[in-house]
Design a protein around this nucleic acid. Structure first.
Lengths: 211, 211
DNA sequence: ATTAGTAGACTGACGGTCGGTCTAATTATG
DNA sequence: CATAATTAGACCGACCGTCAGTCTACTAAT
């Protein structure tokens, strides 16, 4: 006689699996997380997992999709905010990318050696695909308004996204607080310089990094 | 009665294993390459492999070390070349990084979907660790000579290395020939702008990308 | 009665281990 | 000084544990 758990709504189950998987992927790393780890955490069987997802990688894709959607929505909200100037918007979006509600940072904080190559690369690629067009439009508008200047808005965005995503990822490099500030200042400088924005357009934003 | 192959010199064996593993890692991807794939290619037994390397990842590390050493030597040769100007050197080193003797490109050319996250990330990190100091010194010298200007030489180098390593990697994005030229032009522009070099200092180098 | 959902035993592949073998060089012995 | 004993290093491959993914059986709901 098999003990059967009461069925949850499919959405809830799926979300539950994704939530647990996400936590494990971030804390232990994707490769080191076992399907069985996920199962025992929510106390379901293999069959249930594979009823909702066709593979381990499939969950990861779903998780990445989920937070890219959130990022894109956040980016669009920022883009639509008329109280912000173009440079401000750009900075917020690019830096916001590595700020998944502090969730990741908090979790990784102490855990060393999490190296999550696959997940990181996938989400970086996806981020570029989805966020680059939005940011590019933003820069193009800035050019029209005369606050930016560059013949390569799209490629500039790509460079900025890739480097910030890589350099500020807590799972790849472990900078101490001081180094982080330095990197951020440098990033702001590079941002200003490469877009030929007015010096100081971004500078004041650096205070936010103190928190 | 066990048939025993004649012993090779340890160096030769080790190199043989690394060569075969490298080819397989590049063509099939690290994850999809099996230890047994490597073994049957050179016709040795499991034990032999693990006599020379403590794990699959260990071979990869050795392979990465090997070509980083080559890159560093190439970079130092370029650095020591008095016939080249600073901007020229920088460009050659950064772009040379994604030009492993055409070996990788040739191999990947047709093979789609090789995605080699782990190997790529590791070598990018190692490249930054080893190449960044050399390039930083180069920029600092350029600043003294008055051809460059930036308060953040180190961080600028990091941004340039990360983005070129990522964007120009044939395994990550598949740009067609035209797009590649566009990316390279943009990269040169960004390089010039962020270092405040004279326009045109790098431009002529773009002809090299035609080959 | 049909189907959406759950269960968990099972499979196969793969990374890694381990006891042992073979050969050539080195050292001890008559 | 020839030859037997010993050692060291390269190599072998059966075996093991783990893990993603499969399959069939069972149950809950409509």
């Amino acid at each position: 006689m098999i003990i059967m758990k009461k069925s949850k709504s499919p959405e809830a189950r799926k979300k539950e699996i994704m939530d647990v998987a996400e936590t494990l992927f971030i804390t232990k790393g994707y490769a080191k997380t076992t399907i069985n780890n996920i199962l025992s955490e929510i106390d379901i069987a293999k069959g249930t997992f594979y009823y909702y997802f066709k593979s381990k990688e499939d969950v990861m894709d779903a998780i990445i999709d989920r937070f890219i959607t959130i990022e894109v929505e956040a980016a669009e909200a920022i883009a639509a905010d008329d109280t912000l100037k173009a440079p401000d918007k750009i900075f917020r979006i690019i830096m916001g990318e590595n700020h998944h509600g502090n969730k990741k940072e908090k979790m990784i904080e102490e855990l060393h050696e999490v190296s999550n190559e696959k997940m990181h690369q996938k989400s970086l690629i996806e981020t570029i695909k989805q966020l680059a067009p939005i940011l590019t439009r933003m820069i193009e508008q800035g050019i029209v308004e005369g606050v930016f200047e560059t013949p390569y808005p799209r490629e500039t965005v790509e460079v900025l996204l890739v480097s910030s995503g890589f350099i500020f990822d807590d799972g790849i490099f472990q900078w101490d607080e001081e180094e982080k500030i330095q990197k951020a200042k440098a990033f702001v400088y590079i941002l200003e310089t490469v877009l030929k924005a007015d010096k100081g357009d971004f500078q004041y934003l650096l205070q936010e990094l103190g928190k």
